[in-house]
């Protein structure tokens, strides 16, 4: 599903060049649930942004579902993001003047799905994250955990091939974190490919594979026994 070869990325900071990713190689098959770990500044978000086509790589290649991702113009990148990818962010990033349902329906709107169908689908996904009754509420009327669940519903609404989550539980307490992880596990159970960036060991062990980044290189890449989040909820 995801194929990365010799990926380099550096940022220019005035005269200095900050080499963040120094030749990453890995591939992720369909249906995997991968945790990306590493200390702060190790390049986790940078990697995820490149995978999410929000940023461009300097060197190497990236293939997503057999499609080589390179030299995309903004319109094309927007289309690919919409079709292939779902995003979940640490700070939720909901649009605060739109209701939960409208937020979930947004990616479908950009796909030009008709209004009725859009709303039905949005409600369906809100139902799956257990927030059907909150459909008409604005984000600031929701708790952090609820917001993140809306964000997950939104990421899933366009039925993407890959779900990218950058510290989805970073702003939540442990109980709410487990609820969110439970949701992510269930989505993964349905066969979706998911990447989760996290700092926390326990969250990482709720995935099936852990990739460890340090100073821009992969220092460890191992399969783990998945801990189900359900039991803590």
């Amino acid at each position: 599903m995801i194929e990365i070869k010799d990926l380099h990325k550096s940022y220019k900071m005035g005269n200095n060049k900050l080499h963040v990713l120094k030749g990453l190689n890995f591939s992720i098959a369909e249906g995997e649930l991968v945790a990306i770990m590493g200390s702060s500044g190790s390049g986790k978000s940078t990697l995820l942004n490149i995978l999410g086509m929000l940023d461009e790589l300097d060197e190497g290649s990236y293939t997503l579902d057999g499609v080589p991702i390179k030299n995309l113009n903004e319109t094309k990148a927007a289309q690919y993001r919409n079709k292939f990818l779902g995003f979940v962010f640490q700070s939720f990033n909901l649009i605060n003047y739109k209701s939960a349902m409208e937020n979930v329906a947004l990616p479908l709107y950009y796909q030009k799905v008709p209004r009725k169908e859009r709303e039905e689908k949005a409600l369906k996904y809100l139902g799956q994250v257990g927030l059907k009754e909150w459909a008409d509420h604005l984000p600031n009327e929701l708790s952090g955990g609820q917001k993140q669940r809306v964000a997950i519903a939104r990421a899933m609404a366009a039925e993407p091939k890959v779900l990218l989550a950058d510290e989805p539980t970073g702003a939540l307490d442990s109980k709410t974190s487990y609820e969110v992880m439970d949701l992510i596990q269930k989505i993964n159970d349905n066969g979706n490919t998911i990447l989760v960036v996290t700092h926390e060991e326990d969250i990482a062990h709720m995935c099936k594979r852990i990739v460890h980044l340090k100073d821009g290189v992969i220092v460890e890449d191992k399969m783990v026994e998945q801990v189900r989040a359900e039991q803590y909820v």
Binding site: E74, T75, Q79, L106
Partner: peptide, 11 residues
Amino acid sequence: IRRALGEDPWS
């Protein structure tokens, strides 16, 4: 956010 979710820049 909207662009991350795939809205066309022209839109």
